[in-house]
């Protein structure tokens, strides 16, 4: 992580993660892409979608943390990113809870 307060001398406080980690992340993203295609053809029952989403979230985290330098970013930036994920979760959860429970009331069941 960067120096306290995130004020580094170089860009992104504390310097870049380095070329090695970029190529490492690239390799991991390619492997995970192959893995998600393979997993999609397996008969996992209800688990097909959770597995696909878990792989996608892992890939997104790799891109955000390393390529987008979120790792080592000031706390305020990380706070903003977490807030965006939180609000996206609100958006989806509240909408889904509405649609999922509409039929429970006879008046809307038509």
């Amino acid at each position: 992580m960067s120096a306290p307060g995130g004020h580094g001398v170089n860009a992104h406080g504390g310097g870049h993660p380095g070329l090695k980690s970029y190529f490492g992340v690239f390799g991991a993203l390619m492997v995970l892409t192959a893995l998600t295609v393979w997993a999609a053809f397996q008969h996992l029952g209800v688990w097909n979608t959770p597995v696909a989403l878990a792989i996608a979230v892992t890939k997104a985290l790799l891109v955000a943390l390393i390529f987008m330098h979120l790792k080592g970013s000031p706390k305020l930036t990380i706070f903003i990113v977490v807030a965006s994920v939180l609000w996206l979760a609100f958006l989806i959860l509240i909408t889904v809870s509405d649609y999922a429970t509409r039929a429970w009331l006879p008046i809307y069941a038509r």
Partner: peptide
């Protein structure tokens, strides 16, 4: 795109 690919292309392959 990392999310679009599995959600659009892969959901019914099994």
């Amino acid at each position: 795109w990392i999310f679009l690919f599995p959600l659009l292309y892969l959901l019914g392959r099994h």
